[in-house]
């Protein structure tokens, strides 16, 4: 990665980016309620599973969207959109992905104006917008993939601190331990993003699907997902 683009990547991956992520737990809130995450060790296994499933899918789609925009092939956005729908069987998670996609699109319109924001339509999937945001920021598909998989674990880790009162240092130590895995996931996603959209990763996480559907029926939620 070129050194001059590192600042752009940090901006995109920063949890303080005002794109709605702070209110999403990535399935952690319903998983905590079901007893699936209760301490640092169970959080780490949850995040490991998330990184290699929905994180890997998001990373590949972000990388593919980044490559498509860099190549001027915005027609590919629609193909990626349909392929991502097929990889997201939970209607609650499809809705969440499109909600977060729209919020990131809104933020990026102001942060880095570009014609692609209009071309993405009114309810784009989050990884596709993230990939486009990376491209507009001058970043490579591998940076887009890394930002996506980082986002997939950093959000739930923060949510665990807020919901369970876990030690924030211990939680960040988990994120540090996951670093090599995130690098691997991003590298694999980048490789596969060069191929056909139909062959992008499609890793399933049945408990995340179930958790999202259960969460959507709750009367009171602290997190939006």
């Amino acid at each position: 990665m070129a050194a001059e683009t590192l600042a752009a990547l940090l901006l995109l991956a920063d949890g303080r980016l005002p794109a709605g992520g702070h209110a999403h737990s990535g399935g952690l809130e319903p998983t905590v309620a079901a007893g699936g995450v209760h301490d640092i060790a169970s959080l780490e296994e949850f995040l490991r599973g998330r990184a290699t499933t929905s994180g890997a899918v998001a990373a590949a789609f972000a990388a593919a969207a980044c490559a498509a925009l860099t190549a001027g092939d915005t027609g590919r956005f629609a193909v990626l959109d349909a392929e991502l729908d097929a990889r997201t069987p939970s209607p609650a998670l499809r809705a969440t992905s499109r909600k977060l996609g729209r919020q990131l699109q809104r933020a990026m319109r102001a942060i880095r104006p570009h014609p692609c924001w209009a071309e993405l339509g009114s309810r784009p999937h989050h990884p596709v917008v993230l990939g486009a945001a990376a491209a507009v920021s001058g970043l490579s598909p591998s940076a887009a993939a890394l930002a996506a998989v980082h986002d997939a674990v950093a959000g739930p880790a923060t949510a665990a601190v807020r919901l369970l009162g876990l030690d924030p240092f211990a939680t960040h130590a988990v994120l540090a331990r996951l670093g090599p895995l995130l690098d691997d996931v991003a590298a694999d996603a980048t490789r596969r993003a060069a191929g056909s959209p139909a062959d992008l990763p499609a890793s399933a996480a049945p408990l995340l699907d179930l958790a999202a559907e259960r969460h959507a029926t709750w009367e009171v939620r602290l997190f939006a997902s």
Binding site: A23, H24, A107
Partner: peptide, 14 residues
């Protein structure tokens, strides 16, 4: 997401 001030001040997107 347990941060009411964030939703009205720092990240108003939702």
């Amino acid at each position: 997401g347990c941060c009411p001030h964030t939703a009205i001040r720092d990240d108003i997107s939702a």
